[in-house]
């Protein structure tokens, strides 16, 4: 994505001949380490989730009442053993297995929600910025209304009423964050529209649509990528929250929020049931947030002048 903008932006890194020189130049830049660290963390979690069937011999929904509430392997007091590394839950299901499959579900839902968010938000932002006037005003009022809305209450009401179907869940996740994209894209478009290259394109007879998609959009893209990584993590948390309230993914499908809801009843006797799914959410979103922070610093030329 960075390469697509490099045609009209100045080269991002000082030229370096050798691969190792390029690497040093990259890591010397502000934001490089958070980006690398975050990406590594996030990719490790995604890989583990995808490879779940290879990593664990258990099925996520197979229970074993003989092995109920075993602690993690170091917790001997709760019958912890290496058989179940992170212990088992109230139905004797392997915690690690359920967490890995839960991450799969969380990531899929959040990613699909993000697609909805980005398409809607970027679309609205582009239209608003390019056309301005009445259309812009109307769209921005909608954005204001949504921002003033206690969205969680509304989302809960809708989910309860429609009996939690997955498409509706995705739509609700998507509608949660589109306004941020719309605002930022509109702002950047307005900035870009003042620049000479857009004026030049106008003089040459390019239409609004061509200017928007061909010239302005690539320059807005970095900002969109930064918010998208941030929103991805926000959606993962939102999905976990809905599932924790019993309004998201329904059992027996494993979901991180659902596992935590399940863990509440064992909070006094089996600490691990509630702790580990939360840590899984924490590490996943931490990876994404670090990525977003690194990208923001890398893509902001003002921060790059201070070395």
């Amino acid at each position: 994505m960075i390469s697509s903008t490099s045609q009209n932006a100045e080269p991002m890194a000082p030229p370096a001949r050798t691969p190792s020189g390029r690497w040093t130049a990259f890591t010397a830049r502000r934001g490089a380490w958070p980006l690398l660290l975050g990406t590594a963390l996030f990719l490790a979690i995604v890989t583990a989730a995808i490879a779940a069937p290879l990593l664990t011999p258990y099925e996520p929904s197979r229970n074993s009442l003989a092995a109920r509430l075993h602690g993690p392997f170091w917790d001997q007091a709760h019958k912890g053993s290496l058989e179940h590394i992170l212990g088992t839950d109230g139905l004797g299901r392997d915690m690690l297995t359920r967490i890995l499959y839960g991450i799969r579900v969380s990531l899929t839902l959040a990613a699909l929600g993000l697609v909805v968010s980005v398409s809607l938000g970027v679309g609205v932002g582009l239209v608003s910025g390019l056309f301005g006037g009445k259309i812009d005003q109307a769209l921005m009022r909608i954005v204001d209304v949504q921002l003033a809305f206690p969205y969680v209450v509304l989302a809960m009401a809708i989910v309860t009423a429609t009996r939690t179907s997955i498409p509706i869940l995705i739509l609700l996740l998507g509608l949660a964050g589109w306004v941020y994209f719309a605002r930022v894209v509109r702002g950047s478009v307005l900035q870009e529209m003042e620049k000479d290259y857009v004026k030049a394109a106008e003089v040459l007879g390019a239409g609004k649509l061509r200017i928007g998609l061909r010239y302005v959009f690539p320059n807005v893209l970095p900002a969109v990528v930064v918010i998208a990584t941030l929103q991805f993590s926000a959606l993962i948390i939102f999905e976990a929250t809905l599932s924790f309230l019993g309004l998201g993914i329904q059992p027996p499908t494993p979901s991180l929020g659902g596992m935590m809801l399940d863990g509440v009843q064992y909070i006094a006797s089996a600490w691990w049931v509630i702790t580990f799914p939360g840590l899984a959410v924490l590490f996943t979103t931490l990876g994404l947030n670090l990525m977003s922070d690194g990208l923001r610093q890398l893509l902001d030329p003002r921060l790059q002048t201070v070395q």
């Binding site: 993590s233 976990a240 909070i267 006094a268 509630i274 924490l282 979103t285 931490l286 947030n289 670090l290």
Partner: peptide
């Protein structure tokens, strides 16, 4: 900041209960 931004609020609450009330 990194922790506050990454951890679900309800889970932070539950962890506080776990440590300070239960344990």
């Amino acid at each position: 900041s990194a922790f506050g931004q990454s951890a679900p609020t309800f889970w932070v609450g539950l962890m506080l209960v776990l440590v300070f009330s239960v344990q």
